[in-house]
Simulated scan of single mutants.
Amino acid sequence: MSLFRTIAGVDYFACDACGSIVADRAGLRRGEQDISRKYDESYWQAELSAARERSFGSSLLRIAELFRMARRPLTRVLDVSAGDGSLLTALEVVLPELSEVFHGIEPFPPPEVYRTTHRNYRVGHVHDLDGAFDGGVCIEVIEHLFPDTLAEMIGALAAKSNPGAVYYFNSAQPSFVVERDNAYLDPFERGHVASYSVAGLRALFAGAGFTVQTLPGRDWAFLAEYGPFEVLTTDQMFTRLWYPVEANMAALRGCRLGPMMIAAGLESARCYLEAATAAERTRWALCLQAAQRA
């Protein structure tokens, strides 16, 4: 482990093997700060505005992408660590016909007055849930978790997943932290204690039977699929995007605003894939040009 940076008096270390960045837990304790205390009412008052904005914006796009990228029909979809349940509320507004499909679980909820009234919102941990799920999302969560806690959550998710279930995780990877958001890691105000690399994530998820798929063009997100799948290339990801499971498209077409979600899922995912492809080809061309000049 190498010292990455000291933030608010807490040392963050980068793993020499995988590149993941994690705060020194002992340093947090020495600072007499308990990360769990950030999930009190004052924390939620600060976070709810951003959470609700995501839920009625980018998080809906993630759900739309999930319906296109899933390997199996999505009959039960889970929002892992759902916060106040804003995404469930947004989905009930946009896709009321599929309301029963969506579920949420939150271990450290805000006061009840701030929570969604969606009937499938639960307080507790993943292992407390009944039944199995076909996929879900986990938005801005794992950066709050130390590796052992994340491993526990992954194990619980595996126990509640049907074969082939796919989960969309949104969390900044080290390249994002270094190149685009130096303030992302923050032990006390935001409670961000980790930035996991793809290599680190693959090691953690593989132990519970998941395959981690990168999302080209996004160093702040990835897919975790329950099962021993091949790691997809960009071209294979395009193919998967163009040929979704028909049952999922039919479910959306049966909703008043479903066609919008079908289009949003395609266009959102395609934009990132196209941008990543263009960037890769530009790098290739520049390298070829440099080699010709040498």
Results as ranks from 00 to 15, higher is better:
A276F: 08
L223S: 03
A46K: 12
P216Y: 02
C255W: 08
V137Q: 00
A23T: 06
E179P: 02
A82T: 15
W44C: 10
T75H: 14
L185H: 06
E106L: 02
S171K: 01
R37C: 04
S81M: 13
V93H: 10
S42K: 15
P73R: 06
E140M: 08
G209R: 06
H125E: 14
P110C: 06
S49Q: 11
W220F: 15
V113W: 00
L48D: 11
F108K: 02
F238E: 08
E97Y: 08
G227P: 06
V245T: 11
I139T: 15
L266N: 00
S55C: 07
F222S: 05
G9Y: 08
I21T: 04
A151N: 11
L241H: 02
L145G: 09
C18A: 07
I142N: 13
D84A: 15
G207A: 11
L3F: 03
V166R: 05
R256P: 04
M260E: 12
E41M: 08
A276L: 07
A165P: 01
S161R: 00
A64R: 08
R68L: 10
D84R: 02
Y167S: 01
F238S: 05
S49C: 05
V94L: 09
H125K: 12
F102E: 02
G258K: 06
A206V: 04
G164F: 02
G27Y: 01
R68V: 01
E53K: 13
I63K: 03
G254K: 09
G57D: 12
M1L: 09
A221P: 04
Q236E: 15
V177N: 06
P228N: 14
F169L: 05
A183G: 11
G136R: 03
V77E: 02
G191W: 03
M237A: 06
A14C: 11
S171E: 07
V166G: 04
G83H: 07
D24A: 05
G200S: 06
V166N: 00
A151E: 10
S36Y: 12
T277Y: 09
A151G: 07
R180Y: 15
A194V: 00
V80M: 05
A276Y: 06
V126A: 07
M69S: 09
A278M: 13
S99T: 12
Y196C: 00
E41R: 14
T116P: 04
V113F: 03
N120L: 07
A269V: 00
A183F: 10
L88P: 01
F238A: 08
C255S: 12
S268L: 01
G227R: 01
V113C: 01
E246M: 10
R256C: 11
A290P: 05
S81A: 15
G254I: 12
G31C: 10
N162I: 03
S36W: 11
A14Q: 15
D34M: 09
P163M: 00
G57R: 10
P163H: 00
C271Q: 13
W44T: 08
R52N: 13
V94M: 05
Y12L: 10
V245A: 14
